[in-house]
Nucleic acid binder design. Structure first.
Lengths: 176, 176
DNA sequence: AGGAATTCAATGGGCACCCATTGAATTGTA
DNA sequence: TACAATTCAATGGGTGCCCATTGAATTCCT
């Protein structure tokens, strides 16, 4: 007899699987993966985005979107060009074809979820949003197991000797 | 200015990424991936499970757990043996080593989420569980884009001619 | 000005997920 | 009882995700 927390955990797992299945189903149907459609969607909201900006907006790693974007470029859905002001950056933007594809094949999984959310009353939805957001914020703030080896500036005084490259990230994981 | 549904969508994405990151972090730390730990955890709840049962409980595909389980067997965490009654089935169960590993390295991501949920009042948690469960149920019931080509038995009378193998699934997808 | 540190995007490695298929075993039925 | 249909687990193919590393470009100091 699971408690509420356990139920929530299982709901999350079920949701994630449903989203995966729905995405893959859509992929088969329209030839674009959920990740690809999501990238197109975000590009549709801005005139042009860099790989890092896309990574932020899609909540994934830079290296992940880099690959997804490359595929979209191959398919002529997205244009990629070096930024004139900053030679390291890249400007990704929708092509005519990309815009058309997005119009024809909106992200199904996301749509389904939105529809399901519509079944709640506005009040429930607001409360769900509020409570859920709070939980996620808290999770994000946790930082528990990752000691964050190098602190974020201890005091205004300039850093004593900054270790070589702060490159010390803290790995990541799967299963959801 | 996003509405509540949009906020919920983004919270879900953030949550999923946090879970991925947390899992991978744990993986680096203890040498077991989130998926592997989850499988160990489920095996800890039952005397022995088949691959299909594990797939159900972990909300993934049979082929996915099959691989994860194989890795665990290699590492001596899990014992796999053919079922005596049904030669097709396989019985997976924790070994002493697997049980020890599970004790030493509980699923961190899941734990963090549970802790975050604890920050809600019991009432909020109950409401969250209720509303969220309802949404997921609804999504699961949708079945929209997948016409489910072959009906689930139209009438008691025996089927007219059953097409060969019902093997006609409906694909799936990623991006969360 | 010039070199060190940092930022950006791409690439490679490892794991997970889903679908499809396959071979073995079992169940159902003619 | 024999054969067809189904079930089970494993394998291969394709994609995604994260981390680490790398080379190029830029920013920060000294």
């Amino acid at each position: 007899m699971p408690n509420d927390s356990q139920k929530i955990l299982d709901s999350i797992r079920r949701l994630v699987q449903l989203l995966r299945l729905s995405d893959r189903s859509a992929e088969r149907a329209v030839g674009l993966s959920g990740a690809q459609l999501f990238v197109l969607q975000e590009l549709g909201k801005a005139p042009a985005l860099s790989i890092n900006e896309l990574a932020e907006r899609t909540r994934t790693d830079q290296s992940s979107v880099s690959v997804v974007a490359a595929r979209l470029v191959e398919q002529g859905m997205v244009a990629r060009e070096r930024s004139p002001e900053d030679g390291r950056r890249v400007q990704m933007s929708l092509t005519r074809r990309g815009r058309a594809a997005l119009r024809k094949a909106p992200p199904v999984a996301q749509q389904k979820l939105l529809e399901a959310l519509d079944s709640l009353s506005a009040g429930d939805r607001r409360r769900l949003s509020e409570a859920f957001g709070r939980v996620v914020d808290r999770m994000g703030a946790d930082r528990g197991a990752a000691p964050m080896f190098f602190e974020e500036e201890s005091v205004p005084g300039r850093p004593p000797l900054k270790p070589p490259r702060k490159r010390g990230r803290a790995a990541g994981g799967v299963g959801w």
